[in-house]
Write a protein that binds this DNA or RNA. Sequence first.
DNA 1: TTTCAACACGAAAACGTTTTCGTCGCAGCA
DNA 2: TGCTGCGACGAAAACGTTTTCGTGTTGAAA
Lengths: 342, 342
Amino acid sequence: MKPKLTLKNIAKELDVSISTVSKALRDSPEIGEETREKIKAFAKHYNYKPNNIALSLKNRKTKTIGIIIPEIVHHFFTTVISGVEKVANEMGYNVFVCLSDNSFDKEVLNMEMLANGSTDGFILSLAKETMQKADYHHLVEAINQGMPLVLFDRVVDEIACDKVIIDDVNGGKKAVQYLVDCGCKNIALISTVDYVSVGKLRTHGYKQALVENNIEINEDLILKIEQIENSEVEIEEFLKNKKVDGVFAVNEHFAISAIKTIQEQGKKVPDDVSVIGFTDGELSKRFIPSLTTVSQHGTRMGEESARLLIEKLERTPTENDYYKTIIVETELVTRNSTKSKK
Amino acid sequence: MKPKLTLKNIAKELDVSISTVSKALRDSPEIGEETREKIKAFAKHYNYKPNNIALSLKNRKTKTIGIIIPEIVHHFFTTVISGVEKVANEMGYNVFVCLSDNSFDKEVLNMEMLANGSTDGFILSLAKETMQKADYHHLVEAINQGMPLVLFDRVVDEIACDKVIIDDVNGGKKAVQYLVDCGCKNIALISTVDYVSVGKLRTHGYKQALVENNIEINEDLILKIEQIENSEVEIEEFLKNKKVDGVFAVNEHFAISAIKTIQEQGKKVPDDVSVIGFTDGELSKRFIPSLTTVSQHGTRMGEESARLLIEKLERTPTENDYYKTIIVETELVTRNSTKSKK
DNA sequence: TTTCAACACGAAAACGTTTTCGTCGCAGCA
DNA sequence: TGCTGCGACGAAAACGTTTTCGTGTTGAAA
């Protein structure tokens, strides 16, 4: 194991000073051609790579961004990471990935871990627990420290920062409108509890669509699920003895559980009941019947988030600054769990 | 935006020297009780956190490990990350996640990015292209530089390092044996081209199981898929007019495509044909019929990899060192795509 | 009174860079 | 000869830590 090649080593080897080596490698005109060539040749031959840590310390920036997500075993977040990675790498940044496991404490811990100089800024989707507690002091602190922050998907109005969201209301509306257009009269909603902002918003969209179509909102047709683990039975209970011909679920799992239940009741999807999910994952694509869903374009959200963050990082703070919110359009991907439009 | 709190700032504020502050915070007995308390109180009040970058530079270790995976939008790799994250965090490490997109060049680039001091070591699953080219110079280089490396899943004999794999041969064998036990006589294999080591090994297992059960190997019943994108049609072509009563697919996508095709042919799964997949993802669980699969225990692989790496990092290099290969047992998860055993 | 340990603290080096500011030698000029 | 200017390089500070090695002040022992 050879000792790591440093400027100092090169300098000693070539009998010049450290500064000369540094300048030569950065093509400074201060250095004579001969010396420069010699140094560059040597560096290349021994594959010199400047030490990133030292650079980070010197420049007081790490060229690293952190992303904290509630859970990685979730296709949507995975696509977001993939988007972040892509533009981050293109711009010469590294990505720290941290998982909060939907726990407030882990989220705070992760932020502390990343905020002590390891990253220049971060991208975050709030943990469920955090939204529940509505405790955002760690975010405020980070921002006060001058750490740029981009919130995506699970965002919160209380925090002033850049945000990337989808139009959940509109997405929900689109879905329900489509169901209406397919001729559905009794449309059920399977959502989450209200402190998960996306659940709330999609519920809004559901209601708006109904209102706009002069369909009465029937609270009996709305299910709010608390624990994902228990969702299957809850959905089964919920759909039992209900006369519905359309179901809008706020994620693909709920949608699939609904389809299962419906089929077990001897009804057909989409002939008897049309089902639409949210979040376009592998499951939606390959399930039989394949699922009509509202796609969130996770990759695009990741890309936009990263771009937003890096933009802010590379701008001099003196420039007039304000916070942007980027809304990534949702898209209704129609497949086989819905009847065709009338 | 307050200036970042550093030892120097504290020292000036409290009119002591930097070293005194540092020592006080680290509870050195050198410092008098009174001063120590004063400093600690001050630091706590203003929420002082030592700068990680400076620490990394000083200690010449970053407490960071990198993981490079071929694709993140793949449930198996996601679970691995999750496992790595878990034990890394427990041991006070951060995790850099990089994606090679199955490209050799991106893999090399990622390694260079991480090897210049950013990480203490890494965990890697080889890109498809890398295995195809069989060019491992970047791995050798990293190892020579003294960078510990753990290979997982897609490993390669040529490189001497720690490895975490599953027993693909045995996994394949288990699956096929199970099919045989269910009474299947004509068992097809849907695999990948041979340079993907796991495909090759699982194929081995398939053959072994057949041999052990005195069933003749029929090459016509073996499909090797080159391009994932085209797999559906290939599988459809392949299964057309074939009299099979069992299918072993080396991943869940192939398995599901097979089921689709079989059903379209008017046959029933599992009544007419039993199907087993590999890799236990969301798809397997929720598909109808739910898929019997060979589970790879991705989380455990991630955990083992991280443990292996960190162990090596924290051991003094003088100790007697050798490379381990950990084999994570596969597990046959029986669900509804197979008949019950006779 | 002198000496010496114990105590409490500070100076400085080191990690690997970049960059500012010398400084030295030499050529050109009056 | 004596200046000036310039080309080519080196010294040193700085980024924020930790740690080794002083150093000055005590109090007590001789």
